[in-house]
């Protein structure tokens, strides 16, 4: 069984600060990490391999620095890593990104593809379903548990707003996973050593043998035309006094607004 995990390198958003004067993100000292949701995807791939055997491959599209995210995945125990990097991939929206990942995945071969629920920076969660569409395989989003894989059928639980669903589909298939699915492990010492030495396969646009116009900004129907910073500031009031007075005041205020 060939298991491919798609990961994205993202800035550690807890540390993102905005310069109030220039409205720019202050990047100095902001670390690049594996998208937190993708760590669950990596862990689930390792567990599947331990249970059912097979081969694990980690795939990322991004600038050359994304190499470090792939090495981190290797240190966790994934066997192979592929980086898709090319200036011509720049400006990709979710459709072009999915196309690019899809071309690489066709080249690698696959039985199951695992994505994170969404990436921390863009948070669209669109790559998984779009990628599955491009590969013409079924996808199941928000998987909170893999029940079993048997006779090339995968059975999972998916978390919806107010209920769970138990679903089953044939492989090959794509799933995107939520954080309840597992508790990711830490890298082993041996893994760390291997990660240092491992050769990361890097493919560019030509390696992927796709249609040139479907990559990068050219293959992206959407375009970001403006980015701006907002901060919701409420003209809040602090209710003071002793606790029963504040409770009284709050009650009056909420009553005024018809909330209680």
């Amino acid at each position: 069984m060939k298991i491919i995990v798609c990961i994205k390198q993202v800035p550690d958003t807890t540390e993102i600060k905005i310069d109030p004067e220039t409205n720019r993100i202050i990047r100095e000292g902001v670390e690049a990490i594996i998208n937190p949701f993708d760590t669950y995807a990596l862990e689930e791939a390792l567990r599947l391999k331990e249970k059912y055997g097979g081969e694990t491959i980690v795939l990322s599209m991004g600038p050359p620095q994304a190499d470090s995210a792939l090495r981190e995945a290797i240190s966790l125990g994934l066997e192979k890593a592929v980086l898709l990097s090319d200036r011509d991939f720049a400006g990709s929206d979710t459709l072009a990104t999915s196309y690019t990942l899809g071309k690489a995945i066709e080249k690698i071969g696959f039985d199951i593809i695992i994505c994170g629920k969404e990436a921390m920076d863009g948070s669209t969660g669109q790559i998984g379903p779009e990628l599955a569409e491009i590969l013409n395989i079924p996808h199941i989003s928000y998987v909170s548990k893999i029940v079993e894989i048997k006779e090339r059928k995968i059975k999972v639980e998916r978390m919806m707003e107010d209920h769970y669903e138990v679903l089953e589909t044939m492989l090959p298939a794509l799933i995107s996973v939520t954080k309840e699915i597992n508790e990711p492990r830490l890298p082993s010492l041996r893994g760390r050593l291997r990660a240092k030495k491992e050769k990361i396969t890097t493919w560019n646009l030509l390696d992927l043998e796709g249609e040139k116009k479907r990559f990068g900004a050219d293959g992206s129907p959407t375009r970001v035309i403006k980015i701006f910073h907002t901060e919701i500031k409420k003209s809040g009031i602090i209710l003071d006094g002793n606790v029963s007075e504040t409770a009284e005041k709050l009650y009056e205020e909420l009553k005024k607004q018809n909330i209680v």
């Binding site: 958003t13 993102i16 905005i18 921390m120 129907p221 970001v224 035309i225 980015i227 701006f228 910073h229």
Partner: peptide, 17 residues
């Protein structure tokens, strides 16, 4: 839409599809 965890807003268009 919000991006970067709600810190920033991005305006996006789809011109030709």
């Amino acid at each position: 839409r919000p991006t970067f965890g709600g810190n920033l807003m991005a305006t996006i268009i789809c011109e030709n599809e």
